[in-house]
Amino acid sequence: MNNSAVQSLRLPAEWEPQSFLQLTFPHCDSDWAYLLEEASACFVDIIEAAARFQKVLVVCDNVKRVRAYFRNTSNVYFVEVPSNDTWARDHGGITVLDNGKAVVQDYIFNGWGKKFEAGLDNQITKSLIDQGFLQQCELKSFDFVLEGGSIESDGRGTILTTTDCLLEENRNPQYTQQEIEDILKQNFGAKRVLWLNSGYLAGDDTDSHIDTIARLCNENTIAYVGCNNPEDEHFGALQKMKAELEQFTTEDGTPYKLVELPFADPCFDDEGNRLPATYANFTIINGAVLLPVYGLKQDAEAVDILQRIFPEKEIIPINCRVLIEQHGSLHCVTMQYPEAVKLKS
């Protein structure tokens, strides 16, 4: 691909105008079986909150079954497609603009480095295209493992990611870090890739997806998970991550405005395993930010901080305590599509 072709490509930032949000609803043949009603209620809360501002596409095993959960289906669209699980951020299409035209890029999703079965999830994007639900766009498939939660874009040519995820041996072991960076630049029209080498959350199955620890909020601002307790297992790694972020600059050489998010009190499952509660896993939509909260004392502070970052948007806290039982949170279950992609009505 020549330079002019690369420059015609752009990966929109999440804060740019959106056409719709995609989620994949829990079902009894997923890992949510033992928490199906609790998880379903959380998904309904997310979907109905988002539907106040834009369309929402709900991928489900059975439309009649899933529709019955909803009090209000205005702006909500249902489609039956088989799935293994519910993490739309990682099995959903990643949309670039090529001279303004939408291209939905379909990457291999292999269950976060072959940890979980993902054969059905890996077919969802193609099925949505084949069924005509995604319109005014073309599909481009890649023989490359990539999850949407592993990259952040400022819409202007900067990609933020982590080495722990993209260099993990069960994703793309045939490529070096430089070769992966070149692929990101080529596929997304990026000018540069900022790599974080530190930062993790206990209980995270994704190998440090960027959307769990540090988020681009606008071209000049990064919100990140801080940890100031030397007794916590995360202290060293997150302090190193903070130091790395302090060295990053915008394209013009200006240091980023860094906003520290609260560090959530430890949450554990019934077997005593620590769960990845994070306030960084918010979803930006048209007119609002959907913020995961966990019934913790840090929830209110997180809302206040996000409101200062996004003064023009409504901050909507949604209790996502049940989602971290399966090691993800709110951003992980959503995938936005820019306004150039149209949804079949």
Rank of each mutant, 00 (worst) to 15 (best):
F25Q: 04
A288C: 12
N273W: 05
E16I: 04
S153Q: 05
F70W: 07
A50R: 02
Q336R: 06
D31Q: 13
Q298D: 09
L167Q: 14
V303P: 01
E260H: 02
S83Q: 10
Q186M: 13
C320D: 04
K191G: 12
W112E: 05
T161D: 01
R10S: 15
F235K: 01
F235R: 00
E181Y: 05
L238W: 01
V145W: 03
E80K: 14
T162Y: 00
E37A: 13
L9D: 00
Q326T: 06
N273L: 11
I305L: 13
F78I: 13
S30W: 03
K114E: 15
A102Y: 05
A288F: 10
G132M: 12
K114C: 13
V6A: 14
D130I: 05
I46N: 00
F142T: 04
F263M: 12
K297C: 10
M1N: 11
L97E: 06
L245S: 06
E260V: 08
M241P: 01
R10Q: 13
L120Y: 13
S40M: 06
G93M: 06
L330S: 07
P311L: 10
L306S: 08
G226C: 13
G149P: 01
F133Y: 15
N110T: 12
E48K: 03
I318E: 00
R321L: 10
W195G: 09
D205P: 14
G203E: 05
C227I: 04
A39T: 14
Q54P: 02
I318C: 02
Q186N: 14
L275T: 07
I324V: 15
T221K: 04
G113E: 07
N122D: 15
M335W: 01
Q174D: 14
A264Y: 01
K344I: 02
G111V: 08
F188A: 04
I46A: 08
S83F: 04
S150W: 05
I284E: 05
I159N: 01
Y224F: 15
V103C: 10
G287Y: 12
V79A: 09
N218K: 11
L160C: 10
L330P: 03
L139Y: 08
I94W: 00
L296F: 09
P276E: 09
F70Q: 07
E325K: 15
N75T: 08
I285F: 08
N72G: 07
I94R: 00
Q326N: 15
Y294P: 06
C165E: 01
I285S: 05
H27I: 10
Q177A: 13
A33E: 12
W112N: 06
I285A: 05
H234E: 01
E251D: 14
Y279L: 11
S74Q: 15
Q177V: 06
A50K: 03
Q7W: 07
E231K: 14
I210A: 04
L139P: 00
N122M: 11
I108H: 11
I213A: 06
I124M: 09
H327M: 11
T158D: 02
N220I: 07
E147D: 13
L160I: 07
K126W: 06
R215Y: 04
Y337N: 08
S208P: 03
D207Q: 12
Y34D: 15
L21E: 02
C320Q: 03
D29H: 15
L201S: 03
E169Q: 14
E147P: 09
Q174M: 13
T254W: 01
A190T: 11
G113I: 14
E152K: 11
Q307P: 04
F133P: 00
N172Q: 09
I151L: 15
